[in-house]
Design a binder for these strands. Structure first.
Length: 193
DNA sequence: AAAGGAGGCAACCGCAGCGAC
DNA sequence: TGTCGCTGCGGTTGCCTCCTT
């Protein structure tokens, strides 16, 4: 049985006070991020490390862009979600100043509903991808039948059809459904995606 | 003005991944 | 190679605010 990350009975829960925020911010400014387990004690906070990390990452980080999502951001989220699914951290990584929590909440509260109103099933990534990836003039990557050229890599295919994504996702290969969708059976699997 | 409902968001929980030993 | 501990991620919950009746 793994030990809990902290002694729950000795820690605060719920909303953070201004003083707690200040303590956490000051500590991280001085010592940098990391060592979340030992941070609360060192910073004089009655919180568990996880809670401190979450508060910093989702709320206190200075590079966060607060406020409403723009139309371009929304569009990007939809496209990335169609490609990546619920991998919020990866999606957030493509949106400077946005956190995974923020993107997740925005998806669940705004975009999901919007798509449903448009008659699109938000969890049906195949249908979403199909709507995004329309027939276009991509002669460098696709032939006249709109099939990927044998020489085109998976990342070329996706980046050409979704040029604004600037995908440099080196972590995981795309799911089989995406590979099938864009007819990649003949392309190399050196994914950049 | 008050009550109830819906929406939005911050925070928590549990699990998985990864590195150290 | 297996175990342990830490960190990060995604799902979920709960609280607060706003809107409607």
């Amino acid at each position: 049985m793994r030990k809990p990350c902290c002694e729950k009975k000795e820690t605060n829960k719920g909303a953070w006070s201004k003083l707690e925020d200040q303590k956490l911010t000051d500590y991280i400014r001085k010592h940098g991020e990391g060592c979340w387990r030992s941070l609360p004690q060192a910073a004089g906070l009655l919180r568990c490390g996880k809670s401190c990390r979450l508060r910093w990452v989702n709320y206190l980080r200075p590079d966060l862009k607060r406020g409403n999502f723009g139309e371009d951001e929304e569009e990007l989220i939809i496209k990335l979600h169609a490609l990546l699914g619920n991998r919020w951290s990866l999606i957030a990584g493509r949106l400077p100043g946005r956190t995974d929590n923020e993107v997740k909440n925005y998806w669940n509260t705004h975009i999901k509903r919007k798509l449903l109103q448009m008659g699109i099933e938000p969890n049906n990534r195949r249908s979403l991808l199909s709507r995004i990836i329309t027939k276009s003039n991509f002669s460098n990557v696709f032939n006249s039948d709109n099939q990927p050229l044998k020489s085109a890599s998976a990342s070329e295919v996706i980046c050409t059809r979704l040029p604004d994504l600037n995908l440099d996702l080196t972590i995981a290969p795309p799911l089989m459904e995406e590979k099938q969708l864009i007819n990649l059976e003949s392309t190399q699997v050196g994914y950049n995606v």
